[in-house]
Amino acid sequence: MTTKGKTVKLFFEEGNHHGIIQAEMINWTGYVIAAPRTALADLYKMNDIDKAGIYFLVSDEEKKVYVGETMNGINRLKDHDDKKDFWDKLILVQTKDFNLTKTHCSYLEYRCAQLIEKTFYNLENKKSLNDYTGILPRPDISDMEVFVENLSFILPATGVNILQPIITKQDKTKAVAEFEMNNRFVKAEAYIQDDLFIIKKGSIGKEKSSPSLYETIREKRNALIEKGIFEIREGKLFVIEDYPTTSSSTAGCFLTGTPISGPQNWKVKGTTITYKEWENQQLGDQ
């Protein structure tokens, strides 16, 4: 049987979820060290984190991130600790071997910066980064793209989503269920892909949100408008790009601007079957 499953190994240095975390993945030489800024002194005392790689300075509160390349691991951070105040979390990415050159690291820095610009985070780098695609040999570029793919997968396991794009694309080769919501204020379509409930481009929702809408949903809704994923015009909310959510209810709240039950309000496209009924059918098929 063919499987696309991946194994991530997490080591909690202090035995709690708030301290230093090391993350590794089977069959990948790279590894990630995630740590709060308060643990910086402890990091400097650790062995074997002075290799070539890249790093991120992250503020989840302000949705800011700085990406850099380093040839001496943690030692590069001493200058940043003095000159940059916004960050509260450090992500250090290195390899178990010594195969990363400065050009490899610069390429990874550039590619990660590209990905960050497609997320909810704002890139804090003041200088534009150089594209090293024309310098690295094609086999090296291929290896670095695999490195970025693995890094994008492993980071969320440490609680960091700085490389996760806001928008997605529907994969027509996958068997996905499609849904719709039609009422006085909403004319929208959605689909399920990779275990996410995705609002389709072209969907229309309500312009204003109600006072009863959850504050976290309201903030993210406003952020999506600022990012241009949602657009307000003609007294309505328009979805400009396919946008993934964690649940049908979250998607419904974005579109209606009010707290609603997604399972009760979304229906299988072209039918009267609710998402809840469809979900029960899927469970019954197991």
Rank of each mutant, 00 (worst) to 15 (best):
F12M: 09
E13P: 03
E14R: 14
G15A: 06
H18V: 05
I21P: 02
E24G: 13
N27K: 09
W28T: 05
T29G: 10
Y31D: 05
V32H: 01
L40N: 07
Y55K: 03
L57H: 01
V58P: 00
E62V: 04
K63A: 10
M71R: 13
N72L: 09
H80S: 07
D81Q: 09
D81P: 07
Q94V: 06
Q94N: 06
D97T: 14
T101Y: 07
K102E: 15
L115Q: 02
K126T: 12
D131Y: 05
D131A: 09
G134P: 06
P137M: 06
P139S: 05
D140V: 12
D140G: 05
I141L: 12
N150Y: 11
P156A: 01
G159P: 02
T173P: 05
E180M: 07
N182R: 14
V186F: 01
E189P: 08
A190Q: 02
A190E: 04
I192G: 00
Q193G: 01
I204S: 00
S212F: 06
E219A: 11
E219H: 10
I225W: 03
I225P: 12
G228T: 00
F230Q: 00
F230C: 00
F230R: 01
E231V: 11
I232T: 07
E234K: 15
E234L: 13
V239R: 00
A251Y: 01
T258Q: 13
P263S: 04
N265K: 06
K269M: 04
K276E: 14
E277S: 08
E277I: 06
E279D: 15
L283R: 15
G284N: 10
